[in-house]
Computed example of a mutant assay.
Amino acid sequence: MVDKIELIKKLLNSDFEKNLFEASLWNLQDRKNKLRFNNFAYSIRELSRHFLYSLSPDENILKCSWYKNETDKKNGVTRAQRIKYAIQSGLDDKFVNDNLIDLEEIKEIRIEIAESIDVLNKYTHINPNSFDIEETEIEYLSNNVIKALYNFASTILQTKKQILDALDNEINEEFIQRVVYENIDEISLLSTHQSVHAIVPEQFNLKKIDSNSIYIDVEGYVEVTLQWGSNSDLKNDIGAEMHTSFPFCALIKIKIEDDIENADIEFEKFDVDVSDWYE
């Protein structure tokens, strides 16, 4: 159980979740309290609820193209929908199935996660059979609870990573080059004419996926030729040209569609650093 406890601490997202987990474990140490296991189980169940809600806020789920109200409440969100968002965010089922991961696999994973939550719920009920439990039984049951929490958290995060890795292959260097090529304005201020020879994204990573967009951080450099004067001026030696490069950084926002290549693309940020030019 100790190994899983340490792994769970690494999976939790916030200081609140980590503190709640520590407090939950302390319940098991209170040997004078006949409800110590029940308090432990209840606290862990609440931790799992906070963890899932932190990954899948209601306001994000309601904006997803795949969302539909399956409850008797206005803008209701089911547990299954919350798990779905925690795994695939706003990515459409068809896009996920066609490009990233088989939907049947995701359905099986969602069932596994739901079963882990059911295990946590099971041990929170107080009845004659779960009151003032013997020490050996507490050890056995607490191991089951910790295992369920670990399976719950790790399955969500591992599947999310699997989707992100698959999406990373879709958004390749060629795609980044094409997108960035159309958005270089800073260089136009440096000379009469400019021509871009190469866009080199040295690193790019998926920053996040929300209800309707994918965000990508990109860093790299652009290779350009700067020209002063016309082509005729160059021939008459009264113009000049220079080959150089400039670093750039960008935050690209891609609207989620069935096809990445044809998706709407916006730049949340695009900066070419030409500061060295003026030094």
Results as ranks from 00 to 15, higher is better:
84 K>Y: 11
81 Q>D: 02
73 K>I: 11
77 V>N: 13
102 D>N: 15
81 Q>L: 10
76 G>I: 11
98 D>S: 03
88 Q>Y: 02
73 K>R: 15
88 Q>A: 08
94 K>D: 07
101 I>S: 04
74 K>N: 01
83 I>H: 08
94 K>H: 06
86 A>M: 13
77 V>M: 15
101 I>Y: 02
79 R>G: 12
103 L>W: 05
101 I>T: 01
73 K>M: 14
73 K>S: 14
81 Q>Y: 08
76 G>E: 10
103 L>K: 08
97 N>D: 13
72 D>G: 02
98 D>A: 09
100 L>T: 04
83 I>S: 12
79 R>P: 06
89 S>W: 04
93 D>A: 07
72 D>S: 06
73 K>L: 15
98 D>Q: 03
101 I>L: 15
93 D>L: 04
83 I>F: 02
84 K>D: 15
93 D>W: 01
90 G>Y: 02
98 D>N: 12
104 E>K: 09
86 A>K: 10
74 K>V: 12
94 K>I: 14
79 R>L: 14
98 D>W: 03
78 T>R: 09
86 A>R: 09
104 E>F: 09
79 R>Y: 11
88 Q>P: 04
89 S>F: 10
72 D>Y: 11
101 I>C: 04
73 K>F: 15
80 A>N: 13
101 I>P: 05
87 I>P: 02
104 E>V: 00
96 V>P: 00
103 L>I: 11
104 E>T: 15
95 F>T: 11
100 L>Q: 06
88 Q>S: 03
72 D>K: 01
78 T>L: 07
82 R>M: 12
88 Q>R: 14
85 Y>L: 01
94 K>W: 06
